[in-house]
């Protein structure tokens, strides 16, 4: 075995090769980060190639329609905004009634909204699903499909050339109940929904609640302002802004009046009217104004034909809420009877 040992001794690696291997090992460690980066880049490239190929295939074989909802779901987000209720994770809680938004899906031709109404009410009217600010609705269709409801509902299906849809009625019954509604708004012009709020009004036991949906296009951010800094003042405080939501295109203001209508002076009522009128007039957009007692005091304004119609109150009522969609620049610079309303 001595010979074996001697022979093994001859197996040697040269000093140069030893050094070379050591250098290789050192470089391997140094290059590791670069290798990871390279791998990542390759993965990204493969992903992009796959996406492009898929897109090309979709285009070539016209899978657009089939896949539209799939893609649009992720691209488009709907922002829900409740007026008169508290928004909690898409739930709008009123005193004894909750409207819960389950799903909103938007594609270029329609808006699908599925919602639950939970509560104990004798009757519910769903009314006035409309798009504000829009000027022309060549075909605006509202369909209601009740789901999982043991009581028959009146169908609501109408074609609108005017952005108000007449009422539909559902009986909720005396017990706590949940109704599931699904609405599909079909609109010919895809631009109609973009950047424009869609408000649905729910009449429940002769009261109504508005929920406004605002489509957020291309990830527009919403800026919240400090409400307390906005003062609505004419001969003392009449009310102040309760909710304020601003997008690059709109500002939605909910006024909270704490003065009984009967306590308002005629001058103040005139100011209010003037204020609303000025908003409408100067913003030059379709705008709606809602006041709590719809039947008694309300103002519907249709700017489609450059006309503004006020349903003026004839008797005294408490004005609790008032919502309007106005242009932000208008609000910033609005002056009524010498009083300037400012947002700081």
């Amino acid at each position: 075995m001595n010979k074996f040992k001697k022979e093994i001794d001859q197996i040697n690696i040269s000093a140069y090769e030893k050094k070379e291997i050591l250098e290789k090992i050192k470089n391997k460690k140094k290059n590791k980060k670069q290798i990871y980066l390279l791998r990542f880049a390759v993965i990204v490239l493969i992903f992009m190639a796959c996406t492009t190929t898929t897109y090309a295939l979709v285009k070539i074989f016209n899978f657009d329609e089939t896949l539209k909802i799939l893609f649009d779901k992720s691209e488009e987000e709907l922002n829900n905004y409740g007026v008169g209720g508290t928004e909690v994770n898409n739930e709008y809680k009123f005193d004894d009634f909750t409207i819960k938004i389950n799903q909103t899906v938007y594609d270029t031709k329609s808006l699908y909204i599925s919602l639950d109404m939970i509560g104990k009410k004798e009757k519910v009217y769903i009314d006035n699903a409309f798009i504000s600010e829009g000027t022309k609705f060549e075909e605006f269709r509202l369909e209601e499909t009740p789901i999982e409801n043991d009581k028959p509902l009146l169908d609501m299906k109408c074609t609108l050339d005017y952005p108000f849809c007449e009422q539909s009625m559902a009986l909720l019954g005396e017990k706590e109940n949940t109704l599931n509604y699904a609405y599909n708004f079909s609109i010919n012009h895809e631009k109609d929904l973009i950047n424009k709020p869609l408000t649905m009004r729910f009449f429940i036991d002769d009261e109504y609640y508005d929920i406004t949906f605002i489509l957020q296009n291309n990830k527009m951010k919403i800026k919240e302002l400090d409400f307390d800094k906005v003062v609505y003042n004419q001969d003392g405080i009449i009310g102040k802004v309760k909710h304020l939501k601003i997008t690059p295109m709109h500002i939605i203001v909910t006024f909270d009046y704490n003065v009984a209508f009967e306590d308002l002076t005629q001058a103040q009522i005139n100011d209010l009217d003037q204020y609303v009128y000025n908003i409408m007039y100067s913003s030059n957009i379709y705008t709606y104004i809602t006041l709590q007692n719809y039947s008694k005091l309300s103002a519907h304004l249709d700017y489609e034909h450059d006309e503004i119609t006020f349903l003026k109150p004839t008797i005294d009522y408490v004005i609790n809420e008032n919502s309007a969609v106005i242009d932000i620049d208008t609000l910033k610079s609005l002056t009524i009877n010498g009083v300037t309303f400012k947002i700081n």
Partner: peptide, 17 residues
């Protein structure tokens, strides 16, 4: 490097075999 130079010959021999 110390470990490397201390053992590289032995490891080379094993691998060589």
């Amino acid at each position: 490097e110390d470990i490397y130079y201390r053992n590289v010959d032995m490891i080379y021999k094993i691998c060589f075999i």
